[in-house]
């Protein structure tokens, strides 16, 4: 919404879907001034808004939970302490239900994912124009405040999870065990020659399954949050129509969608956590 330029629905939507990207422009390092410039920066660029909000929310998580951990005693918990402990217990229960190995890292991973993703999704409930407009007044042209609507963020987490899957698979089963899992099933034969013939087919099938895990994990969260954000933006366009009837209708829709979205953001955070735990559990299982 650069001042002086007439706002159309298309420009409004495009503006809302453009990240504040820092990278190399024609005039040296700097922020991209429009979506096209951001795209031209290629891989060597950073979405400052997504990453910034993401790290900020992660720090909120760390500080909040560190505060609770500091005050944690075996006495009677109160207020905030109760809430934090409830979350911890919930995550602990979920991990114990779906992960049967003995790895002290799984539960903290699950807690981090759940709370962090939940916080990132929660940004979706802030009215779409509120914070971006504040930044615009401050001279920052673009601001996407929901990190989980940026595929970089969701895929970044999913690829980190993928890295953990590979790490634990090799750690638990050994390189040969892991390769065996990739090549000796689902098709198996007693004769070594036939088995050798099956190997490439097995590898192809298993690789697809393996690679599908991080991409489905990241794209599911991204898709859900992107779609939700999109609907909020579309509802927000109704306010610009100038008709108070459409505006009032938009307000009702926004309220309804926001209430429904509370469910979605929690559910998506939960799904991301549970799937991560399940994938890591599979990595720990020896066939």
């Amino acid at each position: 919404m650069a001042s002086g330029v007439e706002i159309t629905s298309t420009s409004y939507i495009q503006h809302h879907l453009t990240n504040l990207t820092f990278g190399q422009t024609d005039h040296g390092w700097g922020f991209a001034h429009n979506a096209q410039e951001a795209a031209e920066m290629g891989f060597m660029a950073v979405n400052v808004d997504s990453l910034g909000w993401s790290i900020f929310l992660g720090l909120v998580f760390c500080i909040l939970f560190r505060f609770a951990a500091n005050r944690a005693t075996s006495g009677v918990p109160t207020g905030m302490q109760n809430f934090i402990e409830m979350m911890v217990e919930f995550v602990d229960g979920t991990v114990k239900d779906s992960f049967h190995g003995n790895n002290p890292w799984i539960a903290p991973i699950a807690l981090t994912i759940f709370v962090w993703v939940f916080f990132m999704n929660l940004m979706d409930l802030i009215p779409v124009d509120f914070i971006p407009h504040l930044f615009e007044v401050g001279g920052v042209p673009f601001q996407k405040i929901v990190p989980s609507t940026d595929p970089n963020i969701t895929l970044g987490m999913a690829l980190a999870v993928f890295g953990m899957i590979l790490y634990y698979s090799i750690k638990v089963k050994g390189v040969s065990g892991f390769l065996g899992e990739l090549t000796l099933q689902p098709f198996a034969a007693k004769s070594p020659i036939i088995q050798a013939m099956f190997m490439p087919i097995n590898l192809a099938l298993e690789l697809v399954g393996l690679l599908a895990k991080p991409f489905s994990l990241g794209l599911r969260l991204f898709g859900n949050m992107y779609a939700g954000e999109m609907i909020f933006i579309l509802i927000a366009i109704m306010y610009m129509s100038g008709s108070w009837i459409l505006g009032a209708f938009g307000g009702t829709l926004q309220l309804g969608w926001a209430i429904f979205h509370i469910l979605i953001i929690t559910l998506q955070a939960f799904i991301f956590m549970v799937l991560t735990v399940v994938y890591l559990g599979m990595a720990h299982e020896n066939h």
Partner: peptide, 12 residues
């Protein structure tokens, strides 16, 4: 919507 270094920033 471009995949860029943000990916690694997020991973780290």
């Amino acid at each position: 919507m471009n995949i860029n270094l943000t990916l690694f920033g997020q991973m780290i």
